[in-house]
Design a protein around this nucleic acid. Sequence first.
DNA 1: CAATAACACTTAACAAGGTAAGTAATAACC
DNA 2: GGTTATTACTTACCTTGTTAAGTGTTATTG
Lengths: 156, 156
Amino acid sequence: MENHDRPLLRRTARSLPIALLRARETVMAPLREMLAESGVTEQKWRVLRVLEESGPMDQSLLAAEACLQLPSLTRILRAMEEQRLVERRADPADRRRSIVAISRHGREIIETHAPDSIAYFARLENAYGHDRLKALLDLLEALNELDLNRNADDNS
Amino acid sequence: MENHDRPLLRRTARSLPIALLRARETVMAPLREMLAESGVTEQKWRVLRVLEESGPMDQSLLAAEACLQLPSLTRILRAMEEQRLVERRADPADRRRSIVAISRHGREIIETHAPDSIAYFARLENAYGHDRLKALLDLLEALNELDLNRNADDNS
DNA sequence: CAATAACACTTAACAAGGTAAGTAATAACC
DNA sequence: GGTTATTACTTACCTTGTTAAGTGTTATTG
């Protein structure tokens, strides 16, 4: 009685945004729990990961790599500086920029959690299947390379 | 100089949480823009979608279906009631529960945006490929059925 | 049937997401 | 070379995410 005979839109389980959201929640919930023990949020962990992986960089690049907006990053870096997880120095060549680097303490945090993180993802890979995981990462990487920002009613 | 020779963890592009986050951002950014015109956030849209698809339900179920936590849902429903997008009534059989239903105005909002939404996803499907999209949804659905909440050092 | 547990939210507090506007520094233009 | 963009953040504001604690209601137990 309460439903239309033909739903206007597809089932939420087959809705890409919702499926992606659920997947992230499925994957991240156990990790968040792990990280919380060190006072590191999911976002701070991403910042540490990116800096450890790619070295010092300015905030715009860091934001892009860690999938954070600049305003969020500003706040997070302030907290991370207070926690001595990262260090910031002005770029001498361009005083608008500041260069962020991971600190020794930041590396220690990564080293502390890397074994648990690795074990967790091994467990995930085992439960989900190696081939499936590879296929999923390939599909996500391809999706992320799409440019969907054209307007639907763009006449150009 | 700034990097380890062997990174402790995998490239962020091959990190499942980050790949999922980027994918969500890629897919949702254009949609958010569309919805903002009606004062509907991404989350309110999900609530409307679920209610339209499955009919009235209590908040716990709605939260699960719309991928929202109960505290968030409490706030969102308060706003949506003020916007007359949904209606809430106490469950006569169990006064702890309240049953939420989409309103006529809520349905109108869905009808307003359904064509754009459908066009957008058609565009996405076209750019990404029908088979890839199906494969991705299948893989995400399978991932979401995993139970990863065992503790890594669970001895049982 | 009283005490207790479980349930369905709700509130509170703080971190983060998202948009818009503001500030200082550099680049581009005439 | 002074004016006008553009860039790289930063601030402000509001909504949402996340955890923990609180409130009223129903179920369970002794």
